[in-house]
């Protein structure tokens, strides 16, 4: 796990941009954190780094938003309202991952058992000050584990992998 502390939403977005630089089509990122932690802010930084020019807004209402980046698509999902339910299959995750795209899922905690065991977990927690956050990035499965060294190098965070 790699831990990075940020003091502003912009810093969180800069971390997201570094992760985006390592992203490949077919990647899955799980964004965990309480209400207001900055999951959508993270996705905004991530998407912009991939060349998305449209505004990235909260997907809570529509469940899924799709954006065009320069070299790959970005699918932004929100399972906030699905968390107690067994209907993740309706989201069509395999098709989304197969769409030359990277997929980010907000509030993914409760659906972990239904996901392929191959993703990067990004947990965002509150710090002392109002805007302080800690981002804990944990590779689960082969895709992101293969990039551990690059994650460690580019995020420059603390903590062993």
């Amino acid at each position: 796990m790699i831990r990075v502390e940020t003091a502003t939403a912009a810093e969180t977005q800069a971390v997201a941009a570094k992760l985006a630089a390592l992203a490949q089509p077919g990647d899955l990122l799980l964004l965990l954190g309480d209400l207001g932690a900055g999951k959508t802010a993270f996705t905004q930084g991530f998407g912009r780094a991939l060349g998305v020019t449209q505004p990235i807004t909260s997907p809570t209402f529509t469940l899924a938003q799709q954006y065009e980046g320069t070299s790959m698509r970005v699918h932004h999902l929100d399972v906030y309202r699905l968390e107690q339910l067994d209907e993740v299959s309706d989201l069509g995750l395999p098709e989304l991952l197969d769409d030359n795209a990277v997929v980010l899922i907000e509030w993914g905690d409760a659906i972990v058992p239904m996901l392929p065991a191959d993703y990067l977990e990004v947990r965002i927690t509150f710090g002392e000050g109002d805007d302080d956050r800690a981002l804990e990035c944990t590779p689960i499965g082969p895709r992101w584990s293969a990039r551990k060294a690059a994650l460690q190098r580019d995020l420059g965070g603390s903590g062993p992998c």
Binding site: L35, T40, A41, Q44, P55, T57, S58, T60, F61
Partner: peptide
Amino acid sequence: STVDDAAGEAYDKVARY
């Protein structure tokens, strides 16, 4: 238009919180 959350969504999320 909104650049992040819709106003009604903020109401729902704050109420839930």
